[in-house]
Amino acid sequence: MTSPLPPLPATLPVRRLGPGDLAACSELAVSRDWGAEEHKWRFLFGHGTGWGVDAPDGRGLAATTVLTRYAGGLAAVSMVLVAARYEGRGLGRRIMTHVLGEAGDDTVTLHATDRGRPLYEKLGFREVGTVVTHRGTFRPPATDEPGRAAPRPAGEADLPALLALDAEVFGADRSPLLRDLPRFAERTLVTEEDGRLTGYASAWRNDGTLVVGPVVADTTAGARRLVTAIAHDTEGPVRLDLRTGDPLLHTLPAWAAAHGVLPAFPNALMVLGDRDLPGDDARRHTPFMLALG
């Protein structure tokens, strides 16, 4: 039987990452069978704080994570990666302990893969839901709902109403991210009824895949209309990160699968301690990205 590897030296520091570390972050992600996701890493570094541990052998980064904090006391942890050659030597726990200290008294959330979940549970996280990532070539429905105005491109004049709706639904202020959507996303659409903004959706590219998120809508039917409008003419794969569980409440997964976007892998939505996530889960249909809570 192989003996467990000893923990790495306690003096190995966790340091703040900067733009010069982006290439090393992508390299570590690729080594762990994630995509390079350079567009995503750059956005996260622009709106959150990256933390990392330099590899003792001088070969890039041994571990990474990103902490994104929102006004209102909510924080998301993401991009928790440990180089395979250092796995099982305490780096994941060390970098998570550091970043939780940085989060202070915020309510902390993350999406966990099966690989990372045991560590998060030991640190006090509990599962509050499941989000299943769906991928595939989207086949739009043959007809739209009659009597409904089609989603339209978002304009600058829509921003105040969009920010107000998002803060109500998300339960925290993520306006800096949303103000950055024109630069980051390919497109953003909105729906309205009687002059009132009822929903919006954005779509952005991640290593050749069109990620649809966030999707905020007053009804599931409204979410379907937004997804259809934003993804109907897409070449290549579409990704949707969808809550699952109650088949009567969470109907988007079955609808997405029926239109070619199939379930690929699950993620546990987790919260630290006994706190609840703020906001209105019924109108929050997909996250901006799993990394942002």
Rank of each mutant, 00 (worst) to 15 (best):
T2R: 15
S3Y: 08
P6L: 09
P7N: 06
A10Q: 04
L12R: 06
P13I: 11
G18E: 13
A23S: 12
A24C: 03
G35E: 12
E37K: 01
K40H: 15
W41R: 04
T49Q: 13
G52P: 08
D54T: 13
P56D: 10
R59T: 04
L61R: 08
L61T: 02
A63Q: 03
T65I: 07
V66R: 00
A71V: 09
G72F: 11
V77W: 00
V80E: 00
A84M: 03
A84R: 14
A84P: 04
R94W: 08
R94F: 10
M96D: 01
D105K: 11
V108N: 02
V108D: 02
T109N: 01
T109I: 13
A112Q: 05
R115S: 10
V131T: 14
D144K: 14
D144P: 08
E145C: 03
G147D: 12
P153N: 08
P153T: 13
A154N: 03
A157F: 05
D158T: 09
A161W: 03
V169S: 05
V169C: 04
G171I: 00
A172E: 09
D173F: 03
P176W: 08
L177N: 00
R179S: 12
R179K: 12
R183T: 05
F184S: 04
A185N: 06
T188S: 12
T188N: 02
L189Y: 04
E192Y: 00
G195S: 08
L197N: 07
G199D: 06
R205A: 14
R205V: 11
G208M: 11
G208L: 04
V212M: 06
T219G: 07
L226H: 05
V238K: 07
V238P: 06
R239T: 08
D241P: 11
L242G: 15
T251D: 11
T251H: 06
P253N: 10
A264H: 12
F265S: 06
P266C: 10
P266N: 09
N267Y: 12
L272A: 02
G273M: 03
D274I: 10
D274Y: 04
R275H: 15
L277N: 03
D280G: 07
R283L: 05
P287F: 08
A291M: 00
L292M: 09
